[in-house]
Computed example of a mutant assay.
Amino acid sequence: MTEPSSLDSTRASYDTVAVDYAALLADELTDKPYDRAMLTAFADLVKAGGGGRVGDLGCGPGRVTVHLRDLGLTAFGIDLSPGMIAVARRTYPDLTFDEGSMTALDLADGSLAGALAWYSLVHTPPEQLPDIFAEFHRVLAPGGHLLMAFKVGAECVRLEQAYGHTVALDVYRFPPDDVAELLVKTGFRVQARLVREADSREGTPQAFLLMVKPMAP
């Protein structure tokens, strides 16, 4: 798959903010019990299925990757931004982090027991989602699980200042039913969905979809 041109500005923006982003969001999960509950459910399902490698796709500075590790998963991270990967490697030297794009993952077919896309598609135009979901489906083994988190809505917001820096980011909000429908069309089955209300730092409700790639008949 050819890399979309929109990834250039996303990569550059996250390279710019990487250090401050990591510092500001280091403890973000602490006061988000619903978010942690979905991550725990995901981890429990992966372990119940026999375990295996789990990719945090769009891992940023690795804060959720290490949370997955602490939940008992064999987790590693992939991110578009070299700056984010550098921060993740410095912060968590015992984990593996590599540069890469969700549009063309450098992973073998069926090589993952689990895949996490934790707000990592918020800069992805809706028309590109089917191709990325096909990549998720390709790299997951039958019986593998996918957990997604994203902002609820049906619009795009332009972000030009973030984490104390100038950036150039389009932030997309998605209707949960539309995302679930696309995932089902890709070959996934819905296991659970959660929409929680926005907290004091968020402008919209937040959605979580837990999917499974069915076993071959």
Rank of each mutant, 00 (worst) to 15 (best):
R138G: 04
V152P: 05
T124Q: 08
L129D: 07
R138H: 01
P142F: 06
S120P: 03
V139A: 11
F150G: 06
E135N: 08
A149F: 11
A134H: 11
E127H: 12
P130N: 11
V122P: 08
T124G: 03
P142K: 04
P126L: 13
P142T: 00
V122S: 15
P125G: 03
L147G: 08
P125C: 06
I132V: 13
T124S: 04
G144D: 05
F150R: 01
K151R: 15
G143A: 01
G153I: 01
S120A: 06
A134W: 08
G144W: 03
L147D: 09
G153S: 04
P125W: 04
M148G: 10
L146E: 05
E135H: 05
L146V: 12
L116G: 03
L121A: 08
H123N: 10
P125Y: 09
G143K: 03
L129K: 05
R138M: 01
A154P: 09
L121E: 02
H123C: 02
L146Q: 05
H123G: 01
A134N: 07
F136S: 10
D131P: 00
A141I: 15
Q128A: 15
G143D: 08
F150E: 00
L146S: 08
H145V: 13
L129Q: 03
A149P: 02
R138K: 02
P125I: 10
A115S: 06
A154T: 14
P130C: 10
P142A: 07
H137E: 09
W118T: 13
H137L: 07
I132E: 10
H137R: 12
V122Q: 14
H137W: 13
T124L: 10
V152I: 04
A115F: 02
T124R: 06
A141W: 14
L140K: 00
R138V: 00
A117I: 12
L147Q: 11
H123K: 05
L147R: 10
A149H: 10
L140G: 04
L146Y: 10
A141G: 14
H137N: 07
L147V: 08
E135W: 03
A154M: 14
V152H: 04
A149C: 11
V152A: 08
L140R: 02
F150K: 00
V139W: 07
P125D: 02
V139G: 06
V139H: 09
V152K: 01
A117G: 09
L129F: 00
P125L: 05
T124W: 05
L121D: 06
G153P: 02
F136L: 14
F133G: 09
F133M: 14
M148C: 12
L121Y: 09
H123S: 02
L121K: 06
A117F: 10
L116S: 01
T124I: 12
G143S: 03
I132D: 09
A149Q: 07
E135S: 09
H137Y: 15
H145N: 11
P130E: 06
I132H: 11
H123D: 02
